[in-house]
């Protein structure tokens, strides 16, 4: 029993020191933003590898999620004779929830894990401390551009996911199952509010982009510089990102959509 309490105390202390290091790391990242904006080339390269290279997985997943929503929505709604509102259902689910959440989860798996492994290996091969000895701050030179790239790409990818998903729902709903195409789009136009739905969805994906990039970069930077350490850090990135995304999604949903 005493050992249990001891271990509890120990792990609490360890997690709090880690949180402290992560917060300090975040401050370092943010204080490096100005120096990155002066050299947009660094950011552009990262936008390509973090954002553009995630295009394919986001597009394909978005298409399939939209198609599934179209199918499931149609069967449920047609029981009530309300299949005309399929457009609203698909769009609302995507824009409010599935777009930000699923694309963030995919982003953590595709780009987050790659970032962690990259930074962890740079640490393991002494590239980061080599940079420090060359009087180049590795946080400013390596970490901040990647952070900004993640932060900027995430909302755009979420938007892409939702857009492709809506098209997927339309393909199934009106193309296959015979919902009127005009009704699909006009119901959607009438039912989706720019501020309540779209902006709130964007806010979510901004928060997820911030958190996922932060976790991925910190885990890499904090990794034990061995092959085992890097592999564990990569796993932690995916697991911690998934928890944070889903937990924050609940909190944000409660805050933003609670009143309606």
């Amino acid at each position: 029993m005493i050992r249990f309490i001891q271990n509890l105390g120990k792990s609490t202390r360890i997690s709090f020191t880690k949180l402290g290091r992560a917060s300090y790391f975040l401050i370092q990242i943010i204080s490096g933003i100005a120096s990155v904006l002066v050299r947009p080339r660094l950011l552009l390269n990262q936008l390509y590898s973090v954002g553009v290279l995630s295009f394919l997985i986001i597009t394909i997943s978005g298409l399939f999620v939209g198609m599934v929503l179209g199918l499931q929505g149609y069967y449920t709604l047609s029981d009530f004779g309300a299949e005309e509102t399929l457009g609203v259902m698909v769009a609302a689910s995507l824009v409010r929830e599935l777009g930000p959440v699923v694309s963030a989860l995919l982003f953590a798996g595709r780009a987050g894990s790659a970032l962690t492994a990259e930074i962890g290996l740079m640490k393991a091969t002494e590239q980061l401390s080599g940079m420090e000895m060359m009087a180049v701050d590795p946080v400013k030179r390596i970490i901040t551009p990647r952070f900004l790239a993640g932060f900027i790409s995430m909302p755009l990818l979420a938007g892409l996911f939702s857009a492709v998903g809506i098209i997927g729902g339309e393909m199934i709903g009106s193309g296959l199952l015979g919902v009127d195409e005009g009704a699909y789009w006009s119901q959607m136009q009438a039912g989706i509010d720019f501020y309540d739905d779209i902006i709130n969805g964007v806010i979510k994906s901004v928060v997820f982009g911030f958190v996922t990039s932060w976790i991925a970069l910190f885990e890499g930077y904090d990794a034990i510089p061995t092959s085992e350490g890097v592999s564990r850090a990569t796993t932690r990135t995916v697991v911690n990102s998934a928890f944070s995304i889903l937990g924050l999604d609940f909190i944000l949903t409660a805050l933003m959509f609670g009143d309606n």
Binding site: T125, E126, G130, M131, M133, M134, A135, V136, R141
Partner: peptide, 30 residues
């Protein structure tokens, strides 16, 4: 540190750049 050079055991070259860019790195940064 700009006036110190350090040679790491592993070399610590930046793996995403060519040899030329690696040597140019401190010059371009500073």
């Amino acid at each position: 540190r700009k006036r110190l050079g350090m040679l790491f055991q592993s070399g610590a070259l930046l793996t995403d750049m060519t040899v030329f860019d690696n040597v140019a790195f401190p010059l371009r940064e500073h």
